[in-house]
Amino acid sequence: MDLAVRGVRHRYGALDVLDDVSFDVASGEILAVVGPSGCGKSTLLGIVGGLLEPSSGSVTTGGAAPQGCLNPVTYVFQDFALLPWRSVAGNVALALEPHRLAPAERAERIAAVLALTGLAAFAQALPKQLSGGMRQRVGIARALVVRPAVLLLDEPLSSLDAQTRLLLTDELLAIWARERTTSVYVTHNLGEAVALADRVAVLSRRPGRIKALLDVTVPREQRGKEAARGALAALEARLWDLIRDEARLADRERADAADE
């Protein structure tokens, strides 16, 4: 399934957050969205996912959803958004609850995503018993259990420590290597963007506009390898060149914007 974002603008009261954002995500493509903090990245993803109403503009999908898809446009949240009173399996099961499924298929789907995310042994654990990395694995498992057509990831690794972030980056690569789900990945971490995405959209500071769209030219299979490091680092540096001044100005504007 592909995604088309056309002329999206958004205002919070008197504050212009997004200004005429348009881009396409091809079927099976992984697009990273980066930009200085407060540039409206998460707002943009909220609009794409139907969780926020844009002031104007439209988001459309096209093409067929994969077989067994229950929730075409599916979210992975920054703060995990797990129900603390439900077990790991119970949290994953929540995503299936609005759908009529045979008990066997339900159990099979849950077991499959728990195995895929390395959570099989923790099915009955409560979120409070899990580390941050494990909690986000639950968030990812819950998103995958509905076999999404478009996966929206809102800074999924930003509340994790640096080492756990690297581990989960590899796991996300492995998940996408199995099945190329069309994805939009919002992050402020440029290394993550070039490691995971096919293309990177750079947003300007608020009001956010698309400032640049860069292809990540290193093939995905080679990104973990030593030889690819130089090319990825160069790309990351290019992204930082595009963002640095925006980030500096955004930082100053933030100090002025006491009314936020």
């Binding site: 969780l51 929730n71 703060d79 958004a81 129900l83 929540l94 609005p98």
Partner: peptide, 12 residues
């Protein structure tokens, strides 16, 4: 955020 999560999965 938990309510929005429920809405994002289409829970009635």
């Amino acid at each position: 955020s938990l309510v929005r999560m429920g809405q994002s999965f289409g829970l009635p």
